[in-house]
């Protein structure tokens, strides 16, 4: 897949790939297969080299890659019969959160996630994936439907944060998120959470309580974005790379701190290089997890969920 947008550190890989593609197009005229093989070997080494040494800031950039698969991409690639449902029944329909019933394999599920746009127009429509209170309230309404019809819930997290607007505050952004936290803690069906891109603060956590929390390899999860952290603690926007380091926001860190249960590998070069493969990997993992949680008795499920989040944190007594 040719990328329209690429990150600085992806450039050397893409250059080589382009060269290989050019050589391939000439290969019917000349026999250059050994050269192509050599270059392919080289690009593999280079890719491995770059992706094994990604800095936290580079991972943040990958998580925000404009060609990364978003919630609806995963939904369309992983599920059948997706029926999108709209509205919170109080105020409106937030386009930054989508959700509905679908079949994942042969399993009926409720799937909900934050949705970003791909270009300026769709980003304005989706509010850059920054939900308003009605988005969280819609998500909760859908989860309650799932509970009523005994369907497991899958949530996909990908947001730069809950929208910090005047109207969002008027309509109770904090209350909407807080309500979801307490309601999701007590939802009588299994919940599986996946961080598929950016997991920024309360805006992410607002659909982030679950029995299993998974995270794609090149995502970030934090209490604040590296940019905002830099501006508050260093009083300048220039320390975002240091802030990304300091915040320990990568999937490996999350696993180490027991904030997530499992890292889902991405296709070579990141999920944006192969949407289909990324979705296949995620689908397989989700089916395994659904299988696991469906075996747990309901009372035990809720006890475990409260225990899981109740144990989070580090202190000395």
């Amino acid at each position: 897949m040719a990328l329209q947008n690429y990150l600085d550190f992806e450039k050397p890989i893409l250059d080589l790939e382009q060269k290989i593609a050019e050589m391939r197009s000439m290969s019917d005229k000349f026999d250059i297969s050994s050269e192509i093989n050599k270059l392919e070997y080289k690009v593999n080494i280079l890719r491995k080299d770059i992706f094994e040494k990604l800095t936290p800031w580079q991972i943040v950039q990958l998580a925000r890659h404009p060609e990364r698969p978003y919630t609806l991409d995963y939904i369309y690639l992983m599920t059948n019969n997706f029926t999108e449902l709209h509205g919170d029944r109080y105020y409106g329909d937030d386009k930054a959160i989508v959700g509905g019933f679908a079949n994942l394999g042969d399993k009926p599920v409720m799937i909900i996630g934050q949705q970003k746009g791909r270009d300026t127009k769709s980003n304005i429509y989706r509010n850059f994936g920054m939900p308003n209170p009605e988005g969280y309230r819609k998500a909760l309404r859908l989860m309650k439907l799932a509970e009523k019809f005994n369907r497991p819930v899958i949530t996909l997290i990908d947001t730069p944060g809950a929208f910090p607007g005047i109207e969002a505050e008027e309509r109770g952004q904090a209350e909407a998120i807080a309500r979801n936290l307490i309601e999701m803690s007590n939802l009588h069906v299994p919940i599986i959470v996946v961080i598929i891109g950016e997991g920024a603060s309360g805006g992410a956590l607002g659909i982030g309580i679950g029995d299993r929390v998974l995270m794609l390899q090149y995502c970030w999860y934090s209490v604040i974005s590296p940019e905002s952290c830099s501006s508050i603690l260093w009083r300048s926007w220039d320390y975002k790379e240091q802030a990304a380091d300091a915040l320990k926001l990568t999937s490996k860190d999350m696993l180490r701190f027991k904030i997530i249960d499992r890292i889902i590998d991405e296709p070579v070069g990141g999920a944006h290089r192969n949407h289909k493969e990324a979705a296949e990997i995620l689908k397989k993992a989700l089916l395994e997890e659904l299988d696991g949680v469906s075996k747990i008795k309901k009372d035990k499920l809720l006890d475990n969920r409260i225990k899981k989040f109740g144990e989070m944190g580090f202190w000395k007594d």
Partner: peptide
């Protein structure tokens, strides 16, 4: 970092 974010989840 995210550990403090999880305190929102924990208390709720």
């Amino acid at each position: 970092g995210a550990i403090s974010l999880m305190q929102l989840a924990k208390t709720s």
